[in-house]
Design a protein around this nucleic acid. Structure first.
Length: 500
RNA sequence: CGCGGGGUAGAGCAGUGGCAGCUCGUCAGGCUCAUAACCUGAAGGUCAUAGGUUCGAAUCCUAUCCCCGCAACCA
């Protein structure tokens, strides 16, 4: 059986989840559910990134122990995953022992490859911020938070010889051996690689940053947070202990990330794997950011959408569907209350929900709920097209286009109802004709239910009960499963109107 | 001349040489199985601007204007 291993980026636990986390979670979950429904042995990993100076600082400012602080924050991410109905197989935390040992094992591999060396790093250090600042953080040469000029500080760091792999990485992306979706991100990365990658500082002195994973054989240094974080994709599979999951699922088939961290994944991470002599991931899917009511979310504008609040007041399927359907998968998108309601009403309630509702009702009305037998599905060719598009779009990391093909197919079924007018056939007692129409409609709704399932798992589960179909079946088996002669359950609206 | 992406109907987008499309919204009509849902039709675009190549350009070339992302060691 083929396998598919996919990951989200691990969320940074310096603050509660925002809508962008929900977006990434939903994208990943839809893809995971899709591959499972294709009959692929799928492993879906998500988790949290818990080291780094920012977390250390945030915890310190809150007067908290760092571990306790992240233990608290991670609860919000657990809750988000649960509330979004995620089917992740594991949730990795970088403060876990398994991860730490795995990260150290990889570090040693890099050392063995002679890609780690000691050097000095100089930067502009603000003692108020307890962090190095870059030029763009400064106004008039001063730190904007503390209004003092940072001092030039030099510290001893281990460096990773990333420059060595620059050309190799460029070739991999250029040739498509490592896919980067969408093209605009691929081009951006290639352009960046044209400049050539620099070696990167891979550790921090412990006296400045005590919160991190110890560098093996040097008690005075901890790993730079990215060095540790990136390895989670491997360590979570049990890399430290030579777990069989590594053999089974590595290399990763798809890393889903935000556009802000493309370089770390398509650059640093690939370099690390090359250095360690490990197989490389197949693809990186890059999504954009979500704005709110047309503007970047900010506290001062008061337009911040808290995904946990949203899920507390709206059905999870509505949230999942909005993110998947309305936000272009590889691009930025907007969240607005107005669009949220429109998308829910027109696509879910009016198109899908109402289609199911009218079809099931008519089977009850005209055939006492017993689905008539048909010998051949009238829309087999149209459905084949729809399914083909659905698959290829999702596999090429376009979740929005994937579902659009299904929505079009639903429209086709709605049109068929209008053309055949079952109510008129019933009145004229054209039973054979009516049976044919209804049989085809139920078959159509059944197919659609399978395709909608990764996007709106709750509603489709409910509909599956009414249709008496098994959503646990993979697509092929599900499409072939027989609904004829079954007695349908009673239907209530799958997507009741939202309270505005 | 830093690199890259983009400017197409009220909104969001598709469309890389051959009569300008999709979804939502708007307006009109039809239907009554259905969640005031569904179906049909209409209005609405000088495809950023100017020039060029071509039998033919939203699509290729040149210039200009505007918007956005990136310019890495905070994640």
């Amino acid at each position: 059986m083929s396998k598919f291993y996919l990951t989200t980026a691990i969320a940074y636990t310096n603050a509660k989840p925002h809508l962008g986390h929900a977006l990434e979670f939903v994208f990943a979950d839809i893809i995971a559910r899709y591959y499972r429904a294709k009959g692929t042995d799928t492993y879906f990993l998500t988790g949290t990134d818990e080291h780094g100076s920012k977390i250390y600082k945030t915890a310190k400012e809150a007067g908290r122990d760092t571990q306790e602080f992240v233990d608290d924050v991670v609860q919000h991410f657990y809750k988000l995953a649960k509330d979004l109905n995620l089917t992740n197989d594991d949730f990795v935390r970088t403060s876990s022992d398994l991860h730490k040992r795995g990260a150290q094992k990889i570090w040693n591999k890099l050392v063995e490859a002679d890609d780690i060396y000691l050097n000095s790093y100089s930067g502009l250090y603000c003692s108020g911020c307890e962090a190095f600042l870059s030029e763009k953080d400064l106004v008039d040469g001063k730190c904007t938070n503390h209004m003092v000029a940072p001092e030039l500080l030099t510290e001893e760091n281990y460096f990773f010889r990333l420059s060595k792999y620059s050309d190799k990485i460029k070739d991999l992306i250029k040739s498509g051996e490592l896919k980067v979706y969408p093209d605009v991100r691929k081009n951006e990365m290639l352009a960046f690689l044209n400049e050539g990658l620099q070696d990167v500082s891979f550790s921090r002195p412990k006296n400045i940053l005590p919160w991190g994973i110890n560098v093996p054989n040097d008690d005075s240094q901890v790993m730079y947070v990215w060095c540790d974080a990136l390895t989670n994709y491997l360590t979570a599979l049990g890399y430290a202990d030579g777990d069989t999951k590594v053999a089974k699922y590595w290399p990763c088939d798809l890393h889903i990330i935000g556009k802000d961290i493309l370089r770390f994944h398509a650059g640093v991470w690939i370099g690390m794997l090359l250095s360690a002599g490990l197989p490389l991931p197949k693809a990186i899917g890059v999504h954009g950011f979500v704005t709110s009511e047309g503007k970047k979310m900010s506290k001062s504008l008061g337009n911040v959408v808290d995904p946990l609040d949203l899920l507390a007041t709206s059905p999870v399927d509505a949230v999942r569907f909005y993110l998947a359907r309305e936000i272009p998968t590889g691009d930025d998108g907007d969240f607005s209350k107005e669009r949220f309601n429109i998308v829910y009403s027109s696509d879910l309630a009016n198109n899908f929900g109402n289609l199911a509702s009218r079809v099931v009702s008519m089977v009850h009305k005209y055939f006492n709920g017993v689905v008539p037998t048909i010998t051949e599905f009238k829309f087999e060719p149209e459905f084949a097209d729809c399914f083909k598009t659905y698959c290829s779009e999702i596999e090429n990391f376009d979740i929005k286009k994937g579902i659009e093909s299904v929505l079009h197919f639903m429209t086709l079924l709605n049109q068929y109802v209008e053309e055949t007018k079952p109510w008129a056939l019933a009145k004229e007692a054209k039973t054979a004709e009516l049976a044919l129409v209804m049989g085809n409609l139920v078959e159509g709704v059944k197919r659609v239910t399978y395709l909608m399932a990764p996007y709106v798992p709750n509603a489709t589960l409910e509909l599956a009960k009414i249709l008496q179909i098994d959503l646990g079946l993979n697509f092929e088996a599900g499409f072939k499963s027989v609904v004829a002669e079954k007695t349908l359950g009673e239907i209530t609206p799958l997507f009741p109107r939202l309270e505005i």
